[in-house]
Amino acid sequence: MTRAPIQGPAVTLVIGSGSVKCAAAIGVVKALSDVGIGIDRVVGCSGGALFAAGVAMGFDAATMADITVRTWTRRVTSKRNRMGFLRLLAPRLFGFKAESFGLRDDAPMLAAFRAVFGDQRIEDTPIPLHITATDFQNGELVEITRGDLVEAIRASASLPLAFAPVKLGDRLLIDGYMADPLPVSVAMKSGSRVIVAVGFESPYQSNIRSAGRFAAQLSAILANNLLRSRLAFQSAAHHGEMILILPEFKQRVGLFDTSKVPYLIQEGEQAALQQLPYLHALLNAERERLEAVTA
């Protein structure tokens, strides 16, 4: 599919991992769109992949909010994978296999994603879309720009231990946040100059009284340190401008707190509105620079 070049000022949007909190990106897109700033490319990781896909499809804020409420529910993780538990408890007896190990059945999640996106292919989205995942064999960041959209989102959101890795081509893929929770590098490699990056820190556990919360705390420590170190490198290396939007939520937001979606959107929109005066000035300067280069 040949995509029409975007008219007018535009930015590249990167949406990092952050489960339902990624709904804040809907507010960011709304704030940009309301003042005529387009999106020329979108990158999504883990929970952010779902929202990046919506942006790439050209869905408006109301549609994306509706998709979030319908797809990001507790139901998608409610079904246990019994064989996964048996393989965890008795790996030799039940034959442990990395490629199929997950404690939750992914069928409800796949059905929810398929109901929204059908058989959409990534290369056919109106706005160029990059979804990131992590290669289970070597930890490399994998950029998915072709193929079945639902499979790519599922791979990007393969929360370790909960959902089995996804086999795509000759790679076994796990959650994108394991390689980079906010993959700005993907936008940089594509040549994007003005990047709006919407990122989220993983919440630390306040009351650790189970192995699950203990594991969540370890994961949050690693993810947040990875976020900082990757951003440090990318900030130093970027040839253009990266505008970080890091919404801070005063209300506690659970993994599947879809009742908070309107609040998340509002917070994302407010955070983006604060950046608009600078973004306008920056995009004007970019336009003048390009006109000078092409004159």
Binding site: G199, E201, L227, R228, S229, L231, A232, L244, L246
Partner: peptide, 11 residues
Amino acid sequence: QRVLDIAGFTS
């Protein structure tokens, strides 16, 4: 400070 923190510059 938050930007410096999250971009690792405080280290």
